[in-house]
């Protein structure tokens, strides 16, 4: 679908501009849902000062395309937009953006949720957090796996 738009980049992004880019000059879109993830200053350890995001170039884009493709099979989407940042980021920086557009709100809501759940469990990104007490690789959460699994039954 040509309205699928995926970017893996170091630069920051502006959620408002991205939503507008997807929805402007269109009259068939009735609902746009966006999710923006930010870097927190606490995670497994307190005082996270920065994080570094590594990815698998090539496979990341393919994995995201596949997730969007799966979402398009389940919901009537008019367009999607995914931006994921890589490299070094500090607390408060935006890290990921998923925007979905549809004619009616439920499709956009559910698809956005679905894409984030699978992005977190399927797309090859890894976070390393830098804290006052040292650097460590973030471990995967069971809750994220469970969140993705719940889509398999409905």
């Amino acid at each position: 679908m040509d309205s699928c738009f995926i970017r893996v980049q170091q630069e920051s992004f502006d959620t408002g501009k991205e939503v507008q880019a997807l929805a402007s000059q269109r009259t068939d879109i009735g609902a746009v849902v966006s999710f923006t993830g930010y870097v927190r200053d606490f995670n497994e350890k307190p005082e996270v000062t920065a994080l570094t995001l590594e990815h698998y170039p090539g496979m990341t884009e393919q994995a995201l395309e596949q997730i969007v493709h799966d979402a398009e099979e389940r919901w009537a989407l008019k367009g999607t937009r995914i931006i994921h940042r890589i490299g070094r980021m500090e607390p408060g920086d935006p890290i990921v953006l998923v925007v979905t557009a549809s004619a009616h709100r439920q499709d956009a809501f559910d698809a956005c949720n679905f894409i984030m759940d699978f992005l977190k469990t399927r797309a090859p990104f890894w976070k390393k957090e830098h804290t006052a007490s040292g650097d460590y690789w973030v471990s995967a959460r069971t809750s994220d796996t469970q969140a993705a699994e719940r889509w398999e039954n409905n």
């Binding site: 995001l53 994921h84 992005l119 469990t121 090859p124 890894w126 976070k127 995967a140």
Partner: peptide
């Protein structure tokens, strides 16, 4: 062939 730990993006 790539080897990696569980992913933690997003």
């Amino acid at each position: 062939v790539a080897f990696f730990p569980p992913v933690t993006g997003g």
